[in-house]
């Protein structure tokens, strides 16, 4: 269980508040206007933002004091998820080790993950030689080998076309979403949420609202969501 207990993050005059619980085995979407606090929330979960107060509990342990690398968290950014000068194989292997020559066991897991995302045989290439969709698959493969129970998707597929994006979301849902993990995704597109998210939370004016069933929420959206989607 991921619990945000009276969490608040302060950014000058901006303040984000969250007091929510998310059960494992769920994909949760976060929607809301730019500047409402979605990225700040992800920053707090991944360790790039300090909490002003509150606790972030994972299975009952407060992870807020931990540095980013020691948290049970993997994050996929919007851009620059891969190091351009390293091969696909090394980029994925970084999820396990920073050694220049990863061991056999590591490489086996890397190749297994690449196979899972449909990139078997691409290990020796550099990111520059891949398409946008293939690069997204590489970041996904790294999240797979890291196998951390909290996965944050900060719109990593936003630059892809609709069909490719849907494909990547499905791939994410089938590979990363497991009974013991929580997958959290920021999105601007109701279709993304409807496609893979069991529940959706609205982030509005610095407040993270209670989760709602995604299908219900978009079937009868509350006023602030209607305003956001211009309906």
């Amino acid at each position: 269980m991921l619990e945000l207990q009276e969490v608040s993050v302060e950014h000058g005059s901006f303040k984000l508040r969250a007091d929510v619980r998310i059960a494992p085995g769920n994909v949760t979407a976060f929607v809301g206007e730019s500047g409402a606090g979605k990225s700040t929330l992800f920053g707090a979960l991944s360790g790039f933002e300090n909490l002003a107060s509150g606790q972030i509990l994972w299975s009952g342990t407060d992870i807020a004091p931990l540095p980013p690398a020691q948290r049970p968290v993997s994050i996929l950014f919007q851009d620059n998820n891969l190091f351009p000068h390293l091969t696909v194989e090394r980029n994925v292997a970084l999820g396990l080790t920073t050694r220049a020559r990863p061991g056999h066991e590591t490489l086996d897991r890397v190749h297994e993950a690449l196979e899972q995302v449909g990139l078997a045989g691409f290990g020796a290439r550099k990111p520059g030689a891949l398409s946008g969709g293939q690069r997204s698959r590489v970041s996904l493969a790294r999240a797979l080998v890291r196998s951390r129970p909290i996965v944050l998707l900060d719109e990593p597929f936003a630059a892809l076309g609709p069909a490719l994006k849907a494909e990547m979301l499905d791939l994410t849902a089938t590979t990363l979403a497991r009974p013991d993990t929580v997958v959290l995704m920021i999105t601007h597109d109701p279709q993304d949420a409807l496609r893979i998210a069991d529940q959706t939370m609205i982030v509005s004016d610095g407040l993270v609202q209670m989760p709602r069933d995604t299908a219900d929420l978009f079937a009868s959206p509350p006023p602030d969501l209607q305003k956001y989607f211009g309906k």
Partner: peptide, 14 residues
């Protein structure tokens, strides 16, 4: 890119 330093922190780079 700022994301690379975040990745470094998140992947536990020394």
């Amino acid at each position: 890119p700022a994301e690379h330093f975040r990745l470094a922190a998140s992947l536990g780079f020394s």
